[in-house]
C-alpha cells in the first residue's frame, strides 16, 4: 500500500508574508501542504505531520520580532506536537517565534534561553538582506537531514533581528557540544569567516540556525523558500550554484531544485522517517 504524503501546515500569523512561497517550496518536495491560520482550530492543526513557521513580520514585529506571536494559543499546540517528535521548522520570523517561545534550544522547553538581537553591522543598522553561504554543521535535524555534513549552500537572509545571542554562560558551548548548531555562516568558499558580510548580522559564533536537543525543532534565519528553485539563484553568485545558474538554459533547467530545496527534502525525510517509526 502506498503511504500517503506527510501533511505539513505552514502556520500564518498576522503580519507574515512568506507563507505562500513557503507552501510552494514544501509542496515541491513532495509534501502535502496547507497554509493554516494562527487562530484556526488546534485540534485540526494537531492532525498534521509537521509544521513550518514562515518568514514575515508577525504582529508587525511589535514589541520585538516574534514576541507577541510566541504567546499565542497555537504555540501550545506546537509544544505538544514537538514533544511528540513532529518536525517544526521556523524560518526567519518563524525562528524568532520559536526562540521567544522557548521551543529552541529547548534545554528547558518553554524557557527563553536565547534571543535574536538586532543586527550588528559596520556602518549601518536595521534591516539587511543578502545571499549568504551556509555550512551545514549538523545533519541530525528536521531541516538538514538531507544535506551532507560540511555542505556549503547559498541561501538568502532578510531581517533586522537575526543575531543569535544568549546571556547564559556556557550555553553556546553546550549547543556546539550537542551538535545543536545546524547552520553556520561561512565565506563563499566555505572557509570560516565570522566577520561581515559573510556573517551578515554579527551572530554569535556565526550561527545561522539551531535545533532543539531532539533535532525535530529547528530555528533558522535564512530563507530556503527563496532558494528552492535554480531560477531564484542570482547569476552573479560565487561557487557551484552560481555557475549552475549561469549555465542554465531553458525553463525546464531553471525550474530544477535550488540550494534551499534540500531543507524541504529534509523535512519530508524527517516526517516520513518519523511516521515509519510510529
Amino acid at each position: 500500500m502506498t503511504r500517503p504524503y506527510p501533511r505539513i501546515a505552514v502556520i500564518r500569523f498576522p503580519g507574515m508574508n512568506c507563507e505562500e512561497e513557503t507552501r510552494r517550496a514544501v509542496a515541491a518536495a513532495g509534501l502535502a501542504c496547507d497554509v493554516f491560520m494562527w487562530n484556526g482550530p488546534t485540534d485540526e492543526l494537531a492532525l498534521y505531520d509537521g509544521y513550518v513557521l514562515p518568514g514575515g513580520f508577525s504582529y508587525q514585529d511589535r514589541v520585538r520580532a516574534g514576541a507577541i506571536a510566541a504567546k499565542d494559543r497555537v504555540v501550545d499546540c506546537l509544544f505538544e506536537e514537538a514533544a511528540a517528535g513532529k518536525p517544526v521548522i521556523g524560518i526567519c520570523n518563524g525562528a524568532q517565534i520559536l526562540l521567544e517561545a522557548g521551543l529552541v534550544p529547548g534545554f528547558e522547553p518553554g524557557r527563553v534561553e536565547m534571543g535574536l538581537a538586532t543586527n550588528i553591522m559596520p556602518d549601518r543598522d536595521g534591516y539587511y538582506t543578502r545571499w549568504t553561504h551556509l555550512e551545514v554543521v549538523d545533519t541530525g535535524s528536521s531541516a538538514t537531514c538531507s544535506f551532507g555534513r560540511g555542505d556549503v549552500v547559498p541561501i538568502p537572509v532578510a531581517h533586522a533581528e537575526g543575531r543569535f545571542v544568549t546571556s547564559t554562560e556556557g550555553l553556546l558551548d553546550r549547543l556546539e557540544e550537542n551538535g545543536q548548531v545546524v547552520l553556520r555562516y561561512v565565506g563563499p568558499d566555505g572557509a570560516s569567516d565570522p566577520g561581515f558580510p559573510s556573517n551578515p548580522n554579527g551572530s554569535s559564533r556565526a550561527i545561522a540556525g539551531i535545533r532543539n536537543v531532539e533535532g525535530n525543532v529547528v530555528a533558522m534565519m535564512p530563507h530556503p523558500e527563496r532558494a528552492a528553485w535554480l531560477f531564484q539563484v542570482p547569476e552573479r553568485l560565487a561557487g557551484p550554484w552560481g555557475a549552475s545558474r549561469r549555465s542554465a538554459r531553458g525553463e525546464r533547467t531553471l525550474l530544477e531544485p535550488g540550494p534551499g530545496a534540500a531543507v524541504m527534502r529534509s523535512l519530508r525525510t524527517f516526517a516520513e522517517r518519523r511516521s515509519e517509526e510510529a
Binding site: I68, K71, G102, G115, V165, T166
Partner: peptide
C-alpha cells in the same frame, strides 16, 4: 521574557 508564559517587554538575552 523568561518563559513562554512569563514576560513580554524585554528579552533578557538581548
Amino acid at each position: 521574557a523568561t518563559s513562554r508564559r512569563d514576560g513580554l517587554l524585554s528579552n533578557p538575552h538581548s
